Amino acid sequence: MCGSLMPRPLGDLAEVDPALARRFGWLDTLGLDSAYDYDPVWARCVDLGIAPTFHTGSRRYGLRTSPSNFVYNHIGHFGAASEAVCKALFIGGVTRRFPMLRVAFLEGGVGWAAQLYADLVGHWEKRNRDALEATRPDNLRVDELLALVSRHGDEAIIAAVEARAEQLANPPLDLVGGIADLDDFSACQISDAADIAGLFVDNFFFGCEADDRTNALAFNRSQNHFGLKLKAIFGSDIGHFDVLDMAGVLPEAYELVEDGLIDQADFRRFVFENPARLWAEANPRFFDGTAVEGQVRDLLRADVPTGAGAAH
Rank of each mutant, 00 (worst) to 15 (best):
I179C: 10
K229G: 05
R277F: 13
D12A: 06
K87E: 08
A187I: 00
N283G: 00
A159L: 13
A308E: 04
T56W: 10
G109T: 07
L173S: 00
C208K: 08
L146N: 01
L244Q: 03
P67D: 09
A169Y: 04
T306S: 09
A216S: 12
F241V: 11
P99N: 08
Y38E: 07
E258A: 15
T53D: 02
A311L: 05
A88H: 01
D212E: 15
S222L: 10
F24D: 00
D259Q: 06
R8F: 12
A163G: 08
F226N: 07
I157Y: 05
E255W: 05
D119C: 00
I50W: 11
I238M: 11
N170R: 14
G79K: 02
A218I: 04
N73S: 15
L140Y: 11
D202M: 01
L89H: 14
R129V: 02
G11R: 01
L63R: 13
L145S: 02
P40W: 11
T135Q: 04
V16P: 00
F204N: 06
R96D: 09
T306L: 14
D202N: 13
A81L: 07
G31L: 08
G3Q: 02
G307N: 05
R268H: 11
A216Q: 01
D143R: 08
S186W: 12
A291G: 00
A84N: 13
D263T: 06
I50R: 02
G3D: 11
A197F: 07
D303V: 06
D183C: 01
F226S: 08
G122I: 00
F90V: 10
T95H: 04
F286H: 15
I157V: 15
D28K: 10
A169K: 14
L140A: 03
N283Y: 01
